[in-house]
Amino acid sequence: MEPRMNVHAIGGNLMKAMYQLGIYLSKSSVEQRILHLIYYRVSQINGCAFCLDMHSKDLLTMGETAQRLLLLDAWREVPFYTDRERAAFAWVEAVTTLPNKQVPDQVYQQAREQFSEEELLDLTAATIAINGYNRLNIAFQVPGGSYVPGQFAAKTA
């Protein structure tokens, strides 16, 4: 599949605005590993090849295990995610898919047991950001496979 355009090169002002949210999130009190795990999880839900490639490579570079990445889609059924990670996954899945056009109270309560109000806002902002990137990459058919770990680090630091 040929890309329709290189949004990362052509996007200019739009990408700068999106990178600003990344800069904010890089200073969040939510652990960077959790943020990257939720970026990967949301990208699985949305089927964004570019973001799956990017975040899997970044997570592996950060020391994440292949087993946890390979089984992330089944996080409810395996024992090696923390309660905090599980709460984050449940929250971002609900915010991404909006079952019955809402985030269920049970998911909110689970998230609040693990995250402060500010952290939960940051998780929501991270979900908004990755959904935006997913939609840009999918709409313009940006292929996965060529990302180099840290490629965008200077733009989001």
Rank of each mutant, 00 (worst) to 15 (best):
M1Q: 08
E2Q: 13
R4C: 04
N6W: 04
A9G: 06
A9S: 09
I10M: 06
I10D: 08
G11W: 06
G12M: 05
G12N: 06
N13Y: 03
N13Q: 12
N13D: 14
L14I: 10
K16C: 02
K16G: 01
A17F: 02
A17E: 01
Y19F: 14
Y19L: 04
Y19V: 01
Q20P: 00
G22Y: 02
I23K: 13
L25T: 02
L25D: 00
S29E: 13
V30A: 07
L35P: 02
Y40S: 04
R41K: 15
R41C: 04
Q44K: 09
I45T: 12
N46F: 13
N46M: 14
G47T: 09
A49T: 10
A49F: 08
F50M: 11
C51Q: 13
C51S: 14
D53N: 06
D53C: 08
H55M: 11
H55I: 11
K57E: 14
K57H: 15
K57G: 15
L60I: 11
L60H: 11
T61R: 15
T61F: 14
M62F: 12
G63A: 05
E64S: 09
E64M: 08
T65D: 13
T65F: 10
A66S: 15
Q67Y: 13
R68I: 02
L69M: 08
D73T: 07
D73S: 15
D73V: 06
A74K: 10
A74N: 10
A74S: 11
W75E: 09
W75F: 12
V78A: 06
P79C: 05
F80M: 14
F80T: 05
Y81F: 15
Y81W: 09
T82G: 11
T82Y: 02
T82Q: 05
R84S: 06
E85L: 06
A87Q: 01
A88C: 07
A88E: 05
A88H: 05
F89G: 02
F89R: 04
V92Y: 01
V92C: 07
V92H: 01
V92K: 03
E93H: 03
E93L: 00
A94Y: 01
T96E: 03
T96C: 12
T96G: 08
T97E: 07
L98I: 03
L98H: 01
K101F: 02
Q102V: 09
Q106G: 08
Q106C: 02
Y108A: 11
Y108K: 12
Y108P: 01
Q109C: 05
A111H: 03
R112A: 14
E113M: 08
Q114C: 11
S116F: 05
S116Y: 03
E117V: 15
E117P: 00
E118R: 12
E118Q: 14
E118C: 05
E119V: 12
E119L: 12
L121P: 00
L121K: 11
L123E: 02
A125P: 01
T127N: 12
T127A: 06
I128L: 13
I130Y: 07
N131Q: 09
G132P: 05
G132H: 05
G132Q: 10
N134L: 10
N137M: 11
N137E: 06
F140M: 09
F140V: 08
V142F: 07
V142R: 12
P143Q: 10
P143F: 05
G144T: 03
G145N: 04
S146T: 15
P149T: 03
G150Q: 00
G150E: 00
F152N: 07
F152I: 05
A154T: 07
K155D: 08
T156W: 00
T156S: 02
A157W: 00
A157L: 10
